[in-house]
């Protein structure tokens, strides 16, 4: 059982590519920089992908099956990383950890209430664009999320943010 075509795009290679991609996703999205942690993520994903695919009797669409399994593993790994970082008090690389004082928290929470009210006054797509922008999604991600063109995403964000500021100013908030 050792004959292996040297130039084969194999099942193994496909799974390995996904494991490396998920490692990269965890690094970029969760901000994880420790190579040991990332190696562990890659190994965990590799193992999980193999277990998931080997338990199947018939894989009707192998690579789309692996893709869905990879999605599941990405979700699991990002949840795991978030939990680990919260437990260990780790902040994203490059950021400065500063504990806000109670007054700041109260002020931010009050502003949040006003922002929430203002967002509800915006039209559907503008509200979605602004919420995505405030949630930290890039224009590219917002395009993917709502299947919008670049121009549409940019216009909705710009006009929506202008609407939001207007609503906040009308409510006496300096924004």
């Amino acid at each position: 059982m050792s004959q292996r075509p040297a130039d084969s795009s194999t099942f193994e290679e496909l799974v390995s590519r996904y494991a490396r991609l998920i490692r990269s996703v965890v690094r970029r999205v969760a901000g994880e920089q420790d190579p040991a942690v990332l190696d562990d993520v890659e190994q965990q994903v590799l193992l999980s992908l193999w277990k998931a695919t080997r338990d199947e009797q018939v894989i009707h669409h192998p690579s789309s099956y692996i893709y869905r399994t990879a999605v599941r593993e990405t979700v699991r790994m990002l949840r795991r990383e978030r939990t680990r970082r919260e437990r260990e008090g780790i902040v994203a690389a490059g950021s400065v950890r500063r504990v806000p004082d109670p007054e700041e928290i109260a002020e931010s929470r009050e502003l949040g209430v006003q922002v929430d009210v203002a967002l509800k006054a915006l039209s559907g797509d503008r509200s979605r664009a602004v919420r995505a922008h405030l949630a930290g999604f890039s224009v590219r991600e917002i395009m993917d999320m709502f299947d919008w063109t670049y121009n549409r995403a940019r216009n909705l964000i710009a006009r929506g943010m202008a609407d939001l500021r207007r609503e906040l100013r009308a409510g006496g908030i300096d924004a």
Binding site: L14, A30, S63, I66, Y67, V71, G136, M145
Partner: peptide, 22 residues
């Protein structure tokens, strides 16, 4: 939101090596 950002990244890049991905 964080998970979705990861899923979007996975989707965007998976198709470059896996035609079975969307």
């Amino acid at each position: 939101s964080q998970i979705y950002r990861g899923v979007l990244t996975l989707r965007r890049e998976a198709h470059s090596f896996d035609p079975g991905a969307p």
